[in-house]
Amino acid sequence: MIQFFDVGKRFGDRVALADVNFKIPRGQFVFLRGPSGAGKTTLLKLIYRAESPSEGQILVNGRNVGSIPKRKVPFLRRTIGVVFQEFSLIERRTVSDNVTYLPRILGERRPERRRLAAEALAKVGLDHLQDAFPAELSGGEQQRVAIARALISRPQILIADEPTGNLDPELSRDIISLFFEINRQGTTVILATHNPSLRRRGRDRILKLESGRLVEDRIMDPISAEDIPVALGPPDPVATR
């Protein structure tokens, strides 16, 4: 579960986020929308503590992310998968090695790493490409490898920052379908995009940011397929316990 209480973030005089409040229950699929520069990336970075909030509190699975000591941040990140628009794959390493950074950090031996890589790559349909190098893959395949890397720790939360930004519409649909599938297995997915035409499903939620402020919070009704607004404002601290 992720909760934002009056969260603000400033970079010098520039306000990137202000008074952001929401609560994302476990297993929800959230589209984080807004134009470029609205604060989407900053909001995501606050969740995995690549940035610290200037004000307010952020709870991730009950832990106040802002108060986690710097040396403990890696342990938070091991519970959150992150996918970027630019894939962030290392060219000189094989697909398998790209996917198994975390198992290597955790000291897993090579056979176990290969097994984990195969498992994660199977989830994204690329288990036959373990020994390929990123340069040999298409853009869609590279993004799938990046998703497999994010999934290898079986994270409770998957964050995707414009994951389809470098892909054509058909590949984008495939990738979004993949995120839906991951979400169906119980992972909370937060997908930031400035593309309003991405396909949605019932109960998917939309958080819309403009100029650093949360201006819209809607959930699609699965029966009527209409959006139901969610009241903006701080989450109820009692209800969130």
Binding site: P74, R78, V82, S88, Y101, I105, R149
Partner: peptide, 16 residues
């Protein structure tokens, strides 16, 4: 630097 960024992203400690 890109590899370092990935290591940080997936939860690599500064020691590692």
């Amino acid at each position: 630097r890109r590899e370092i960024a990935v290591q940080r992203l997936v939860g690599g400690t500064e020691f590692y």
